[in-house]
């Protein structure tokens, strides 16, 4: 089954300690919804606030997330789903979609002979 990275974008600074009780309640229901729609979460991570990030471009080190934007990456999870339609249905239910959004991106699958 194909796997997708679901990358969560939330309004900066996206501090997980500042999540509202409502958001946390939605998040708690999410794994069951994923299963129900025919997907499987392989692994998932939440990130510390964007203000804790350090970026390096070339040899320049700067304080903050890599791209300056209203939203920053707040976390990601690896989703296994039968196809993109199912993956998108699952992604749409992520609570981050309410005030930020998510990016669904297929994981690159290496072919057995090493070629793509």
């Amino acid at each position: 089954m194909p796997q997708y990275a679901v990358i969560i974008h939330s309004p900066a600074p996206a501090d997980p300690a500042a999540l509202t009780p409502d958001y946390l309640a939605l998040l708690e229901r999410y794994p069951a919804q994923i299963e129900e729609l025919g997907g499987k979460e392989i692994a998932g991570f939440a990130l510390e606030a964007g203000t804790t990030a350090t970026s390096i471009r070339g040899d320049v080190v700067t304080d903050g997330p890599f791209t300056e934007a209203k939203e920053v990456v707040a976390g990601f999870f690896v989703l296994e789903a039968p196809d993109l339609d199912v993956a998108l249905d699952i992604a749409k239910l992520n609570p981050a979609c309410a005030d930020g959004g998510v990016e669904v991106r297929p994981l690159f699958a290496w072919a057995p002979d090493g070629r793509a």
Binding site: P2, D83, L84, D85, A87, V104, P106
Partner: peptide, 10 residues
Amino acid sequence: AAARIPYRVP
């Protein structure tokens, strides 16, 4: 192909 957009009628 890469994102597995299904070949089907919704």
